[in-house]
Simulated scan of single mutants.
Amino acid sequence: MQMIRAFNETIRYIESVLGGEIDESRVTCLSSYSYAMFSRLFSILTNMTLSEYIRLRKLTKAAVEIKETSGKIIDIAMKYGYESSNSFTNAFKNFHRVTPTQVRNGEAYRVFSPIQLTLSIRGGKSMDVKIQKKSGFAVAGVKLENIDSASCPAVWDQLFAKWSHETLSRLGNGQSYGMCFDMKNGNKINYMACYHVNDIPKAREMGLEVVEIKEAEYAVLSLEGAIPDCIHEGWKYAMEVFLPEQGYMHAGTPDFEVYFKGDMYSPGYTMELWIPIAKKE
């Protein structure tokens, strides 16, 4: 499948420059995504950040070079991005459980192997997905930029610390969204806890941030299960199976977690995931 091929080619490129600088434009050329978006999709598909993957691969390659060559340890450390002997030794020991000098003297070290995406057979299991064009709309709420995914609940806490669900619902049709937008940092996300809004002046008067969303086409996934697990499974299914099979890719515009009434931590909870799509060239 084309998406799997592109992902693996991108990883092979990253592997080839672990001792140097990653050319983000090359990542874009190979994967068809910006470096930040590729990093986000990498996290979705592998359950680890791209920066953590690169860090562990560098420490693995550094250990191999220390073991198999006579190069100075400080030179190897600098090759893989460490500016001092102490910072390299600390990172090396945290991962390998031994020091670089001990590895050179014959101690064993850990190996973190390169990742390769493969097609998995799901036994006929599929999700309810439809392609749907949605008219433009506006949302109002609280947004935080450059945060970890785990910090998203804190954005909702900030919103509800000032305004109740009932008050926010009266601004529009009552629909609440978790919106990810404007990915620029591959290790972080920009997230907005927000509600559909018709009365934009009122929302701004309340001190809420307002974002107007243009008309777009989405892959709409119907999810069932407790959050955040059902969201993660939805993303994996979309990126591994549905979008590649249908010839689509993430369009790079805001995507939405669409929340409905109910116990979000119940296995029977239902919600939707809206992923903006574009045809893959």
Rank of each mutant, 00 (worst) to 15 (best):
Y195F: 15
V27A: 02
E257S: 11
V210D: 09
A278L: 12
E257L: 02
K61E: 15
A91C: 01
F137G: 01
G20M: 03
I73G: 03
V197K: 07
S84Q: 01
A36Q: 05
L171I: 04
G123D: 05
N90M: 08
D148T: 06
I121G: 09
E24W: 03
L171K: 11
L273W: 06
T69K: 12
T270I: 08
T46R: 08
M179Q: 07
E83H: 04
T99P: 01
Y195H: 12
G71A: 12
I14R: 02
K143F: 13
N187M: 13
E166H: 12
Y13G: 04
V17P: 01
V210C: 05
R40W: 06
V103Q: 01
T46K: 10
N8V: 08
S149Q: 09
G106W: 05
W274P: 03
S32Y: 13
F242D: 01
S34T: 15
F112S: 06
P100T: 00
Y259E: 00
Y13H: 04
T101P: 00
A216Q: 15
A193V: 07
E107G: 00
F181I: 03
C180L: 13
I227L: 13
M183L: 14
T167R: 12
R55Y: 12
V139A: 05
V211T: 12
D23A: 01
K261P: 00
H232R: 08
V111K: 14
S39P: 03
A251F: 09
W163P: 00
S16T: 06
I115L: 14
A278C: 09
G178L: 02
I4V: 15
Y13F: 12
T28I: 00
A62F: 01
E68W: 05
C180Y: 15
S32D: 14
N185K: 11
C230Q: 13
A77D: 00
I275Q: 11
F137V: 00
A138Y: 06
Y35F: 15
K79Q: 13
S176V: 02
H250L: 14
A278S: 15
M192V: 03
D263R: 05
I74A: 14
G141H: 10
G106R: 03
F88M: 00
V241E: 13
E52L: 09
M206V: 09
M1G: 13
V64C: 03
K162R: 15
P201Y: 09
G247L: 08
F88C: 01
T10L: 10
T46Q: 14
I200G: 08
S31H: 08
S32T: 14
P201Q: 11
I54V: 15
F42Y: 13
H165W: 10
Q132E: 14
I275P: 06
L30R: 02
K125F: 09
Y177G: 03
S51D: 07
V129S: 06
S51R: 10
D23W: 00
D182H: 12
T118Y: 05
E245F: 01
M1P: 07
L171C: 11
V103H: 02
W274E: 10
